[in-house]
Amino acid sequence: MAAPEFDAELDARGLYCPEPVMMLHNRINDVAPGRILRVIATDPSTTRDIPRFCQFLGHELVNETEQDGEFVYLIRRGE
């Protein structure tokens, strides 16, 4: 199965809470509604923080994976 496509990317590797979510809050505004932002992070707290961010702000968490200590999120921007 091919990896889903994305329109923009945020590399938050090496950053720790609250920096990844703060950067996500700014970067999601650069993505048009309905488009997908890919976020790569190494902080395990993002597994809790990013789904909550999406839930509270009306974005869709399309996919969430973890491999070799990197967490990858695909987020579809809401309206």
Rank of each mutant, 00 (worst) to 15 (best):
D43C: 13
A41D: 12
E79M: 06
P18R: 11
H25S: 15
P44C: 09
L10D: 06
C17R: 10
N29D: 11
N29C: 01
E66C: 11
Y73D: 06
P18D: 10
P51Q: 06
A32G: 01
A12I: 06
R77E: 00
D49W: 08
M22G: 02
A3C: 01
L57G: 01
L15H: 11
I28W: 01
Q55K: 14
N29Q: 14
A32F: 03
R52D: 12
V62R: 14
H59W: 07
R77G: 01
P18A: 09
L15S: 09
R52W: 09
E64H: 14
L57W: 12
L10I: 11
R27N: 01
V39E: 05
S45C: 10
F53I: 02
G58P: 08
E70A: 10
E60F: 03
F53V: 04
F53S: 01
F53K: 01
P4G: 09
M22S: 10
E60D: 13
L24N: 02
T65Y: 02
S45F: 11
G69E: 08
V72F: 01
M23L: 15
E64R: 12
D43I: 08
A3V: 11
I40L: 15
I75T: 01
T65G: 07
Y73E: 05
R38T: 03
D49C: 14
Q55T: 12
L10H: 04
M1E: 13
P20C: 10
V72M: 07
Y16M: 11
D68Q: 13
N26Y: 08
T47I: 06
I36V: 15
R48G: 07
D11S: 09
R52S: 09
A2C: 03
D11V: 07
I36S: 05
G69Q: 08
L74K: 02
A8I: 03
L15D: 08
M1V: 13
A8Q: 10
E64Q: 15
A2F: 11
Q55H: 13
D7R: 00
A41F: 04
R77N: 05
A12K: 03
L61Y: 06
E70R: 14
T65S: 15
C17I: 09
A12G: 10
G14D: 11
L15A: 10
A8W: 03
V31P: 00
L10P: 01
L61G: 01
R48A: 10
H59Y: 08
L15C: 07
R13A: 08
N29L: 12
C54I: 04
E79N: 12
L10A: 09
E60G: 00
E66T: 14
D68R: 13
F6H: 15
A3K: 13
A3N: 09
D11C: 10
I50S: 01
T46E: 08
E79G: 13
I75C: 02
R76H: 07
D68I: 02
G58D: 07
E64G: 02
D11M: 08
N26W: 06
Q67A: 14
D7G: 04
S45A: 12
E79L: 11
G34M: 06
A3G: 04
F71H: 15
C17S: 12
P44I: 09
V72I: 15
F6I: 04
R38D: 04
R13P: 05
D30R: 07
A12R: 05
F53D: 01
D30I: 00
R35H: 12
P18S: 12
N63V: 03
L10W: 02
P51D: 06
N63P: 00
Q67G: 09
